[in-house]
């Protein structure tokens, strides 16, 4: 059996999730507390991947990333990164595609904390970063975990966007979901079933772990 598509899927999901975590914390902080007039606009943009068909996103990524366009050319010339039909391109597209799944849980976690926590930290002379790191984030661990898992799972399940900008290059952009599709097209049901079953079991285990941790079942069990 060829494990490459599965390895690629989880590598993509892992890299995407780590990047998303770094980007989403300040973004969610801003969305939760800012009173800026452009906030509705940014919120809309962040949420767009929830409603847009993945092929629409993929199509525009393809146009934007292509070396014939200003952005794609700039990335190619200055950073030496080719975004179309490459792993970095998949990562960038996945980050944008899964952004709401990471930002929304963190944002609602922050909004649900009482304002007095931030105010108390500010009276004690703490900076915003200190407050975020020492007070706010430790109190929304469940939201962080939910965001991480949703973003990871959503990236694992990606199909349309990857197909549009990654194609199906074995070992580079051929992730498991695409491999399943290809194998079914080739009437190779056994291989398709292998990939599908592995994805099924792993995602089931991840979600189960989240519910156990967030529901406090593990703590009760250990007592």
């Amino acid at each position: 059996m060829n494990w490459d598509p599965l390895y690629l899927t989880f590598k993509l999901a892992l890299v995407t999730t780590v990047l998303l975590l770094v980007i989403s914390m300040p973004l969610a902080y801003w969305l939760a507390y800012s009173r800026s007039r452009v906030k509705p606009l940014i919120e809309t943009l962040v949420s767009m991947p929830l409603v847009l068909p993945p092929t629409v996103l993929g199509f525009y990524f393809l146009l934007a990333f292509s070396p014939g366009n200003a952005f794609g050319q700039w990335m190619n010339d200055w950073l030496g990164i080719k975004l179309v039909f490459s792993f970095p391109g998949l990562v960038l597209a996945s980050v944008i595609y899964s952004l709401p799944f990471m930002v929304h849980p963190i944002q609602s976690g922050l909004s649900s904390l009482p304002d007095s926590l931030r105010e108390a930290a500010s009276v004690l002379g703490k900076s915003r970063t200190q407050t975020l790191v020492h007070v706010l984030l430790p109190n929304i661990k469940a939201s962080l975990l939910t965001g991480v898992v949703l973003a990871f799972a959503h990236t694992v399940g990606e199909f349309g966007v990857v197909l549009m900008i990654g194609g199906s290059i074995p070992g580079t952009t051929r992730v498991a979901s695409i491999a399943i599709y290809d194998e079914v097209e080739a009437l190779n049901y056994e291989a398709a079933n292998f990939y599908a079953a592995v994805l099924f079991v792993i995602t089931f285990c991840i979600l189960l772990a989240v519910y156990l941790i967030n529901g406090g079942y593990l703590k009760r069990f250990w007592k």
């Binding site: 007095s116 108390a120 500010s122 009276v123 007070v135 109190n139």
Partner: peptide, 28 residues
């Protein structure tokens, strides 16, 4: 800024940091 006024403020809901122990709250 509130932090530069050298004041103590006790909120109606106390606003103790739930992730820290009593001693850690004081140390913070």
């Amino acid at each position: 800024n509130p932090g530069k006024r050298n004041i103590g403020f006790v909120f109606q809901d106390y606003a103790l940091f739930p992730n820290m122990s009593v001693l850690e709250n004081l140390q913070f």
